[in-house]
Amino acid sequence: MSQHPFLLPDDPHAPFPPAHLALRQPDGLLAVGGDLSVPRLLNAYRGGIFPWFSEDQPLLWWSPDPRMVFHTQDVRLSSRFRRGLRRSDWEVRADTAFAQVVAACAQAPRPGQQGTWITRDMQAAYGELHRLGHAHSVEVFDGGELVGGIYGVAIGRMFFGESMFSGRSGGSKVALAGLARRLLEWGWPLIDAQVENDHLPTLGAVSMPRDAFLAQVESLASAADTPHDWQARFGRLPARDLSPPGAP
């Protein structure tokens, strides 16, 4: 195994090195350099690789082992939170405020982190992915106010989550639960959550060995079901519908 990350060539269509060649320390660091062009980003996600770097770092590409994922049927909200949703007027939508969601994610404070990896270049790159129908946001609104959201990249029947935020308590949970509800209905079984933190397992995220994750991505990303018009297909989902009748 290489003891250093691979240096990517200038050609944005050049393949990435296999993910299993990523370093163990730091866990999952695979490559350095390249750019955030659409072909490069799509190649990365299809290979189970994602960019993650700070403003003062070179462009870094990662594929950690294990990988955090949500099975769409297993995203969970606490009983107390679901009881509160029954009285909620919040509504979940998709692709009506993509740039706002990404900007809010960039500004959200993260415990133990200074600054953000969602740099201006990252925001522009994912904005271009969104314009071309590859990146999508799920938003939670209280009337006309954006109170939570999540965004990521969709390829085939695979959704690669990038970041989420809460403008009000619980906003990100509702966005995630709404996303999982729709993906489950569409037959999309997984949401990539990238790396573990203390919060994700409380919502149902689990660790998956990288080899198993890559096998799932290879199968799901090649499926012919990438809806570009998420706004219409997703529709409008009342948050109270995320708490089924009779649920505790």
Rank of each mutant, 00 (worst) to 15 (best):
residue 71 H to W: 14
residue 54 S to C: 03
residue 95 D to K: 10
residue 140 V to E: 01
residue 64 P to L: 09
residue 245 P to C: 12
residue 23 L to R: 04
residue 219 S to W: 06
residue 44 A to D: 02
residue 80 R to D: 02
residue 9 P to F: 08
residue 93 R to G: 06
residue 66 P to N: 01
residue 120 R to Y: 13
residue 97 A to W: 05
residue 222 S to E: 13
residue 66 P to H: 08
residue 162 E to M: 09
residue 134 H to M: 03
residue 100 Q to A: 15
residue 216 Q to P: 01
residue 83 R to Y: 00
residue 23 L to C: 10
residue 91 E to G: 05
residue 241 D to T: 13
residue 167 G to K: 06
residue 156 G to S: 09
residue 71 H to I: 14
residue 51 P to S: 09
residue 104 A to R: 07
residue 152 G to K: 13
residue 61 W to K: 01
residue 158 M to I: 09
residue 235 G to V: 12
residue 173 K to Q: 07
residue 226 T to A: 09
residue 157 R to M: 09
residue 71 H to N: 15
residue 243 S to K: 00
residue 203 L to K: 01
residue 57 Q to E: 15
residue 192 D to W: 04
residue 1 M to Q: 07
residue 135 A to E: 04
residue 219 S to F: 08
residue 1 M to Y: 05
residue 214 L to W: 04
residue 31 A to D: 04
residue 158 M to Y: 07
residue 146 L to Y: 03
residue 164 M to A: 06
residue 23 L to G: 09
residue 172 S to A: 11
residue 3 Q to D: 15
residue 232 A to N: 14
residue 172 S to V: 06
residue 161 G to R: 05
residue 164 M to Q: 05
residue 64 P to C: 13
residue 86 R to W: 00
residue 60 L to E: 03
residue 171 G to E: 01
residue 197 N to S: 12
residue 29 L to P: 08
residue 95 D to R: 10
residue 153 V to E: 01
residue 159 F to E: 01
residue 121 D to R: 13
residue 197 N to L: 08
residue 131 R to F: 07
residue 115 G to K: 09
residue 217 V to C: 02
residue 102 V to Q: 04
residue 166 S to N: 01
residue 205 A to E: 02
residue 89 D to G: 06
residue 248 P to Q: 14
residue 248 P to R: 14
residue 136 H to P: 04
residue 21 L to N: 05
residue 32 V to D: 00
residue 59 L to I: 13
residue 38 V to D: 02
residue 109 P to W: 13
residue 6 F to N: 00
residue 123 Q to G: 15
residue 190 L to M: 11
residue 144 G to Y: 05
residue 20 H to C: 04
residue 25 Q to L: 09
residue 188 W to I: 05
residue 67 R to V: 15
residue 81 F to E: 01
residue 117 W to G: 08
residue 191 I to K: 04
residue 84 G to D: 02
residue 209 P to N: 13
residue 145 E to W: 04
residue 94 A to N: 07
residue 30 L to Y: 07
residue 128 E to D: 14
residue 248 P to M: 11
residue 141 F to G: 00
residue 38 V to I: 11
residue 145 E to P: 03
residue 163 S to Y: 14
residue 191 I to H: 01
residue 56 D to T: 10
residue 148 G to Q: 06
residue 201 P to G: 08
residue 30 L to Q: 11
residue 21 L to R: 13
residue 8 L to T: 11
residue 176 L to H: 00
residue 135 A to G: 07
residue 216 Q to N: 02
residue 69 V to G: 02
residue 6 F to A: 09
residue 50 F to R: 02
residue 224 A to M: 03
residue 126 Y to W: 13
residue 97 A to F: 06
residue 25 Q to E: 11
residue 221 A to V: 12
residue 61 W to T: 12
residue 180 A to L: 10
residue 114 Q to W: 12
residue 176 L to V: 10
residue 178 G to H: 02
residue 87 R to I: 07
residue 136 H to V: 14
residue 34 G to Y: 07
residue 100 Q to Y: 03
residue 240 R to Y: 11
residue 102 V to A: 13
residue 222 S to P: 02
residue 163 S to G: 05
residue 54 S to A: 11
residue 122 M to P: 10
residue 114 Q to K: 14
residue 67 R to M: 15
residue 16 F to N: 02
residue 109 P to Q: 14
residue 134 H to S: 07
residue 239 A to S: 00
residue 148 G to T: 08
residue 60 L to V: 12
residue 184 L to S: 15
residue 1 M to W: 09
residue 104 A to I: 08
residue 137 S to M: 10
residue 85 L to Q: 00
